[in-house]
Design a protein around this nucleic acid. Structure first.
Length: 529
RNA sequence: GCGGUCAUAGCUCAAUGGUAGAGCACUUCUCUGUGGAAGAAGUGACGAGGGUUCGAUUCCCUCUGAUCGCCCCA
């Protein structure tokens, strides 16, 4: 409080005479407006009081009116200014509180409210069911990992590691990060727990939040959620095909239309010569490339293939393609993968320009794009084509690179937020949470106690119940029961509590029946059949 | 990190250089023990800070946030 006063004094001394006049005027204006407001509210209250019909309440209110009337006679103005001062103080205090606690969710974060949770539960339920039917085992990985893990696995030059990690020192001085992706953690766990001594390949699935510090926009958050699968310990092409088949099945189950994009990046050995070939090609045509691609030419030339700009597109179409430059082994691997896909009736598009952003990918890579050419036009193309719902690929060198044995592996991940968003865009109906069948209404304290007991008994009998014990009036409770769409309502009043009975009301017909409390469960079961 | 658009009640939207309205939602009443209907009333907002002005929610600037695009990714 004293600080405020000092500040105010300082301000006053600084402000010129004109300004003080202004301030005074301001205050006068405020006073006037405040007074008129108070008068208005008082008039309103008067009107209200005159209209109130019920006897008891008017009596109570009348006394309060008398009090105010008596008080109003001496020095109304002073009282009002006092009230005004108190109000202003309260406002200032509230403002200060708000300044102290920035009551606002952090940028890129989100609260997932019950209404949206329906969609989440639906997606995750399908994912877990399918994963388990494919023989994957669930694991939970830590949210915090050492920074070096991602530097070595994801790649030092990738944007994810370079710019987007939430990083800090823990109390022991370790450089740690909030995980920006799952695969390195899974690989770490595989090595650390000696999973190479389990029957190979090891099939794992997981779900959880990931963190990337970037600017949020359509389908992109700083804390987002992925569901992922890893198959560690086999280089067979059938594994890659199986993961892609999994994706097709999943999106079929979710009724989402998607487009599967497939490509092969080759192994480290055949990628090097291709890379220099590509650099050579673009070097001579540098001036037609966009500024971003200039950067990519040095940093990650493969990414140029992914550029969407018209000028670059022309060059890209004539550029040497990865698929033509694979070594024999990689060629063979890719062809076999595609053969498996054809055999399993998977619909996919070959996309020679598909390049995934993380360093560890080798051979097969794929992405799952939403397919909504029709709805896109209707919604004025509000969503870009860049928002992949999921993606994955082979990472044959990652485990070795982290210090494990040479262990080929393949994996994928889906963005939950993006899938949920896509469900809404494609207007897919998600099963609603089963509504309750029975509502328990109570009137009066005694009945309320009895109702709580009955609620618990029926809950143990596995009835789907609803109630609003917080409400006193039966009418209000009936309204809620109606809104919930229950079939039956149990009504317990004083009389029923004494008689140990319950009224069962059929909400469709309006018929009511009085039943002993002991026989309620039986009666309910009969009626719900 | 860069650029465009936007910011009014819990939600969807109005109006205005003289401190703000509606619909839905919520609470209460008409109806102190009975839902679907109707009527009445109530609660509740100009994102934050500064400037211009007698006066700013409105005009200008800064910040914050949202949103879309670029970069990148799920």
């Amino acid at each position: 409080m004293p600080k405020k006063k000092i500040l105010k004094k300082k301000k006053k001394s600084l402000v010129t005479k004109v300004a003080t006049k202004k301030l005074k005027k301001k205050k006068v204006f405020k006073k006037l407006s405040f007074l008129s407001k108070l008068k208005k509210t008082k008039q309103k209250k008067k009107k209200r009081l005159n209209k109130v019909g019920s006897k008891k309440k008017t009596q109570v209110r009348k006394t309060s009116v008398r009090k105010t009337r008596v008080k109003r006679v001496p020095g109304l103005g002073q009282r009002l200014t006092r009230a005004k001062i108190i109000l202003e103080k309260e406002k200032e205090e509230q403002k200060e509180l708000l300044k102290k606690f920035e009551l606002h969710i952090l940028r890129g974060m989100q609260d997932i409210l019950p209404e949206k949770m329906r969609y989440w539960d639906h997606v995750i339920k399908k994912l877990v069911e399918l994963s388990e039917s494919y023989g994957f085992k669930k694991i939970i990985l830590p949210i915090i990992e050492r920074r070096e893990l991602f530097e070595r696995a994801t790649g030092m030059t990738t944007d994810v590691v370079e710019k987007q990690m939430y990083q800090f020192k823990d109390r022991a001085g370790n450089q740690v990060v909030l995980r920006p992706e799952f695969t390195p953690g899974a690989a770490r766990a595989y090595i650390e727990h000696g999973m190479f001594s389990l029957p190979q390949p090891v099939k794992l699935f997981y779900f959880g939040p990931l963190f990337r510090y970037e600017r949020p926009q359509a389908g992109r958050y700083r804390q987002f959620h992925q569901f992922g699968l890893e198959v560690i310990g086999s280089e067979k092409p059938v594994i890659d095909a199986q993961l892609i088949l999994f994706s097709q099945t999943l999106f079929n189950n979710l009724d989402l239309k998607i487009n599967i994009q497939v490509n092969s990046l080759g192994c480290l050995e055949c990628r090097k010569p291709y890379r220099s070939k590509l650099v050579n090609y673009f070097k001579h045509k540098k001036r037609w490339l966009c500024p971003d691609c200039h950067r990519r030419l040095i940093k990650n030339p493969l990414r140029i293939l992914d550029c969407q700009k018209g000028s670059c597109q022309k060059l890209i179409q004539q550029a040497p393609q990865l698929v033509d430059n694979l070594c024999d082994d990689c060629q063979d691997h890719f062809v076999k993968t595609l053969e498996y896909l054809d055999e399993a009736n998977v619909v996919y598009s070959l996309n020679p320009y598909l390049v995934r952003g993380l360093d560890y990918y080798t051979r097969t890579v794929f992405e799952l794009w939403p397919n909504r050419s029709q709805t896109d036009k209707e919604t004025n193309n509000s969503f870009g084509s860049q928002s992949a719902l999921g993606g994955g690929g082979r990472y044959d060198n990652l485990i070795e690179g982290l210090g494990g044995r040479l262990t080929p592996a393949s994996g994928l991940a889906y963005g939950i937020e993006r899938i949920v968003e896509e469900l809404k865009i494609q207007e897919i109906r998600v099963p609603k949470v089963r509504p309750p069948q029975i509502f328990i209404a109570q009137i009066g304290e005694k009945a309320s106690r009895r109702a709580l007991k009955i609620f618990n008994e029926l809950r143990q009998e596995r009835f789907k119940l609803a109630e609003n014990f917080a409400k006193d009036s039966l009418k209000a409770q009936m309204e809620i029961a109606h809104k919930l769409g229950v079939k039956l309502t149990l009504i317990i009043g004083q009389q029923e509590a004494l008689d140990k009975t319950v009224i069962i009301r059929d909400m469709n017909t309006g018929n009511q029946e009085i039943v002993d409390q002991d026989k309620v469960a039986k009666e309910l079961k009969k009626r719900l059949k």
